[in-house]
Amino acid sequence: MKKRIGVLALQGDFEAHVKSFVRAGADAVEVRTASELDCVDGLVIPGGESTTMLKLLHYMDMMEPVRAFAAAKPVFGTCAGAILLAKEVTNPSQESFGVVDLTVQRNAYGRQNDSRVVHIAPDADFLSRTAEGEIEAVFIRAPIIRRVGPGVKVLAGYAGNPVLVEEGNILIATFHPELTKDSRVQSLFLGKI
């Protein structure tokens, strides 16, 4: 049976994530309520505005259900999702799920004019678990991971900062793998299920 991925669809590029996981061979559905979490094997928190998603998570009483999900099953956060999952958020400081031991600085590259596409060489561990080749990393008003805890494994970096990391069941990218055709990051996440 295909693995079933839920993409948190409160706001952001959830549609691009759904398509990218279908391309990677999974089933993918949009999740907007706590009860819909029960039907999925893994959860994606997409790119978008982390402040908007936080408001909606509170409106819908979804903070605790998502935190409980992350304690039991794999969760993948990109960009805003990375911010929401981190233990500590700066610029400005804001609430988060705190399920991965990172300090993340919001909008750390600057505004949209500072957004960029770069080609990065992932670490050997990422390559051995997926396939050879650079990653095309799309950074859009992206955050920077300023601190990683001792239990966090860095899978790729750019300009001296980690951009793809994992801790247990949680996978974090500060860029947007869902906006390119390369499915290796998605495959790595599916491997956790």
């Binding site: 669809a9 409160l10 706001q11 952001g12 590029d13 959830f14 549609e15 691009a16 790119g47 978008g48 505005e49 402040t51 908007t52 408001k55 909606l56 960009c79 805003a80 949209q112 957004s115 960029r116 596409v117 799309v138 859009i140 008003r141 947007h176 906006l179």
Partner: peptide, 30 residues
């Protein structure tokens, strides 16, 4: 990058504001 930023705004509300006070209300509302 530019279509990508538009993707990030999907499912959201973009609000007209004329001053800082309104901008803060808009951000706080989501």
């Amino acid at each position: 990058l530019n279509v990508g930023l538009a993707e990030m705004l999907k499912g959201g509300v973009i609000m007209d504001v004329v001053n800082v006070e309104q901008a803060l209300i808009a951000e706080k509302a989501g």
